[in-house]
Design a protein around this nucleic acid. Structure first.
Lengths: 217, 217
DNA sequence: TCCATAGGATGATACGTATCATCTTATAAG
DNA sequence: CTTATAAGATGATACGTATCATCCTATGGA
């Protein structure tokens, strides 16, 4: 690995030698992955909390406790709470994108969008908002966040769209985009509406939306 | 009005006479409508705030200030903040129900549902959440409120549905109910999604949902 | 004119929360 | 083993908010 640098006696002048490198660059007291790992754990916990309890369900103290830490270390990981929010939203979007893409990919091309609809509208998806689509859980709240966060949220949404559009019904891309908005509007609304109602009714709302979409295209 | 009770000299024994009535029942220092009026003003202000800023946008102090009062008198009007929340939600639902019913009633019976769709999806409706549908503004938040409030929210939603169903497309009531859920899911989702996006895109999302629905039934 | 009182105002309390300053400690490098 | 230092813990501050106790005052009736 570092064999070319291992004999410092051969280097002349003030060139970099292993000792200098380690004292300048490699001064890491914890495993290099350590901070990254806990950072990711915090974000994942926050992402679940945010989807389950809304934008202010991810209180600093609560999220840190989830990660087995105390509130004090928070600002070693994030410049502000908003930064955590953005990261946990991103995490949430990647979460459902992964689920939906995975489902879509193992179904015949023409049917992929139907698979996405069926996956999104499964009752278990509604039952577990902490693993569900951030749009269905906190869509309206996201519309009200601080101006500074909006561009980043729009970016996530645009990315979401671009990952879904390939699977959408329609010939031209413009058609697929229209289908994306129509289909996701219906699904987001159905999940939101369903969650207001007691279990059996909720499932009927979801099934109804599914029928509507599968027949509608 | 009270002429039958006006001559107290005619009554014998410990019967009710005007003096007693006024000292027992009619001891009202302010106009009887006074309290009701300010109560309604508080609720209307809260209803706007809640729809514009979310469930915790209606802070006691803020709402009272809107009404030209201070926070102290709040509990002369409401037993708790939750009580205000319920009342302002009810107000919000009555608000859009009135708008939609009004629009629907002045259009030919078979077309009423189309008018509702066009009204709900107007860009101005999206621009002014404080006068819009509570479901589009705080649907997911309502799904997370305290268990004790849920029944009352469900009641409001059921009432909303029963007011819209008569205008929905379909022959039998069951069909109309299915249409209600499909149509409102799509509209709620479209408004929520649209509000995440910058103005011109938002309007396309709304128009897209409208086309989808008008063609879909 | 005076009074009783309900509506409203002032002010206090208790709690949650974001943020930051300062202290402690685990650990890789030497 | 020692040491430097970054990750994390403790604790403090500041602010918002719900709730309530207590005070003030406008006003209809006498």
């Amino acid at each position: 690995m570092d064999s070319s640098l291992s004999s410092s006696s051969r280097s002349q002048g003030p060139r970099l030698h292993p000792g200098m490198i380690s004292s300048i660059l490699l001064v890491m007291r914890y495993r290099p992955e350590h901070k990254i790992e806990t950072h990711e754990k915090i974000v994942k916990d926050a992402s679940r909390r945010v989807r389950a309890e809304g934008l202010n369900g991810a209180a600093v103290a609560a999220v840190m406790r989830d990660a087995g830490l105390t509130h004090g270390g928070f600002y070693k990981h994030f410049a502000s709470k908003d930064e955590l929010l953005i990261e946990s939203l991103k995490e949430g979007f990647q979460d459902i994108i992964a689920s939906l893409v995975h489902a879509a990919e193992q179904s015949p091309p023409g049917e992929a969008w139907k698979t996405i609809v069926k996956t999104y509208l499964r009752p278990e998806m509604s039952e577990h908002p902490e693993h569900g689509c951030p749009l269905a859980t906190l869509g309206p709240e996201l519309a009200r966040v601080d101006k500074r966060m909006k561009p980043q949220i729009v970016t996530e949404l645009v990315n979401y769209k671009s990952r879904m559009v390939p699977f959408m019904p329609g010939r031209r891309t413009a058609d697929k985009e229209r289908a994306f908005f129509a289909i996701f509007s219906t699904m987001i609304g159905a999940v939101a509406l369903g969650r207001l109602l007691p279990d059996p009714v909720r499932d009927r709302v979801l099934a109804n939306a599914q029928d509507f979409l599968l027949r509608g295209f």
